[in-house]
Computed example of a mutant assay.
Amino acid sequence: MSKKDRLKARSQQQIRERREREEEEREEREAARYRQSKSAKKLLNKTKYGRYGKEPLGFLFLRLLMLVPFAWSGIYYGLIVIFGTFGGFIEPQPPKWVGWTMLAGDAIVLAGIIIEYLKKHIPAFVSVAVGTGLYLKASQYFINYLTDRLGKVYVDEGIKDIDREYMKHHYPMAAVAVLELCILVWWIIIKVRAAKRKKHEEETAPVKSIVEE
């Protein structure tokens, strides 16, 4: 084989090797792009609710648990006081604003619970906190009012501790706000962790090759 033929053969071999290297690099870039795309999809799912991309079951448990104190205080005993105030069935008779304030508190808390079931945690917490505050303000005034009025007249031994009974009836409403706060804090922790995870994956993601440009 002449020198010219050897040079030509070597040149062709170099061309083949270069093409093979380019093909390998292209396949590696495609694989890296696929991994990055798959990672981005996973990250998108994780961003909202953490590792498994779904809302934790604990959220549902806390939502269901919120209904217990609301039904006990807000619905059952709350409506007793509200109708008793408006209808004149409670002696001594508290001011009408107590009934209206308690009714407003009940309605706002109920709205907050509905918003929470729609997974709008921040407005749900604001609504529940405001409604609970109104309800407890009316309840506290009602309890203090009864205690003050009953302290000025003779009453049977059986109703001397009625203020404590009313506390047991109405103060559990505060648990609704506490549970909603737990949901909000938990959700914030999940969001912060997801943001840190996203930042880490962006920093460690494969850099686009200049050759690919």
Rank of each mutant, 00 (worst) to 15 (best):
A195Y: 13
M167E: 13
N144K: 13
T132Y: 04
V126Q: 13
K198R: 15
P123Q: 10
P123N: 12
V128K: 12
M167Q: 14
I162C: 00
F142W: 10
R164N: 13
K191V: 00
V178K: 08
A107R: 07
G99M: 09
I82E: 14
A175C: 06
S127T: 12
V155C: 06
P92V: 02
P123R: 11
A194Q: 10
L134Y: 07
K199S: 05
I122H: 03
Q140R: 10
F125C: 02
S139P: 07
G133Q: 10
L146S: 01
D156Y: 10
N144A: 12
N144R: 09
A138S: 07
I183E: 08
F89M: 08
G99W: 13
T101C: 07
A174M: 11
H170M: 11
L136G: 09
I108L: 10
L118T: 04
V153F: 10
K119Q: 06
Y154R: 13
P92G: 05
K120Q: 14
D156A: 08
Q140T: 11
K152N: 08
D161R: 07
I80S: 03
F125E: 02
L146A: 00
A138W: 09
F142E: 02
I143A: 01
I82V: 15
I189R: 15
I90F: 01
I82G: 15
K196Q: 11
I90L: 03
V98Y: 03
Y166G: 00
A107T: 09
G105T: 02
V178H: 07
L118F: 09
E91K: 04
K198C: 12
W97P: 00
Y154K: 15
E116M: 15
L146W: 06
L181A: 13
P172F: 12
V153M: 15
A129M: 13
V192S: 13
A194N: 13
K191M: 11
D106F: 15
F89D: 03
K191W: 05
G112F: 02
W187F: 07
F89C: 00
A194L: 10
L134C: 11
T147W: 05
G84A: 07
M102L: 04
A177F: 05
G88K: 00
S127N: 06
I108E: 01
V153C: 07
F89S: 04
R164I: 09
Y117C: 07
T147C: 02
T147Y: 05
R197H: 14
Y166M: 12
W100N: 09
C182L: 15
V98S: 00
I188W: 12
W186L: 05
G112W: 10
D161A: 14
